[in-house]
Design a protein around this nucleic acid. Structure first.
Lengths: 135, 135
DNA sequence: TATTGTTATACTCTATAACTATA
DNA sequence: TATAGTTATAGAGTATAACAATA
């Protein structure tokens, strides 16, 4: 019953998900962290890069390379805040929003495939529980 | 509903688990990979290090440092196979088994604490689903 | 002087390819 | 020559600290 502990099972599932995400993201020019950052920007722009770093759990110095790349792809913009020109507000472009929507849809589908061993009820129970614990 | 995708939720939970494991393992002189290797040895010794590497999903060259450390701690032994002296069979010592049991017990308890938001039924459903998907 | 964003440096982890010893 | 284990080298990823611009 407790032959494999929770951490092992979760790690295995997460690795599968990341493996499934990789080709989808690559298609859009993204890697995992680029995707994480874009998800962090979805819905609301970030007033400063430091805010965004905290929101995504990423170090502010590591975030910079990701933003460079995302800007290069035309997915985000960094515009100086007129009120405090040290700050740069980070915003998803419409192209970025579109790419994000596409990736999300494909990733959600891929995730559901990975849960194929579960029937509808079990699937809901699993996702509900997970959200309850950590969401 | 699909605000946070599965990968994000799993990653967050896994990070919490790893954070909870860290002090438990450190107490026993282990890091995460040392623990993974010992779990891989539990129940049956590994006939060769290459076998063990595959069993634990770890590269054979990276495994070596872990085994050096585990041997140093007295948790495992590497003994040449008389039939083919190139092979070294890796075995958990009794001290290793004891340390592993202790860690496992503490980690299982820590994991259950992390699931405190779930009632007994939900918890079973969650673990069952996870095992079904990936176990 | 303090803070935002950036760059630079060192350190760890990983991947690949040599090396040794046995076969 | 081929394989198990080991070591060495180079590369990627990360953390820390210094730096420039603005407040």
């Amino acid at each position: 019953m407790d032959r494999a502990d929770l951490g092992f099972l979760l790690a295995r599932l997460l690795r599968r998900i990341q493996a499934g995400e990789e080709p989808i993201l690559r298609e859009a020019g993204l890697d995992m962290w680029g995707y994480v950052v874009m998800v962090g920007l979805d819905g609301s722009e970030a007033p400063t890069q430091a805010h965004l770093a905290e929101r995504t759990g990423r170090d502010k110095t590591r975030l910079i390379r990701n933003l460079d790349r995302l800007e290069e792809l035309g997915y985000v913009t960094r515009t100086p805040d007129p009120d405090d020109r040290r700050n740069r507000v980070v915003t998803l472009t419409t192209a970025g929003e579109k790419a994000l929507r596409t990736c999300r849809k494909q990733i959600a589908a891929m995730e559901q495939e990975l849960l194929a061993a579960l029937d509808a009820e079990e699937r809901v129970a699993f996702e509900t529980a997970l959200t309850k614990v950590v969401g």
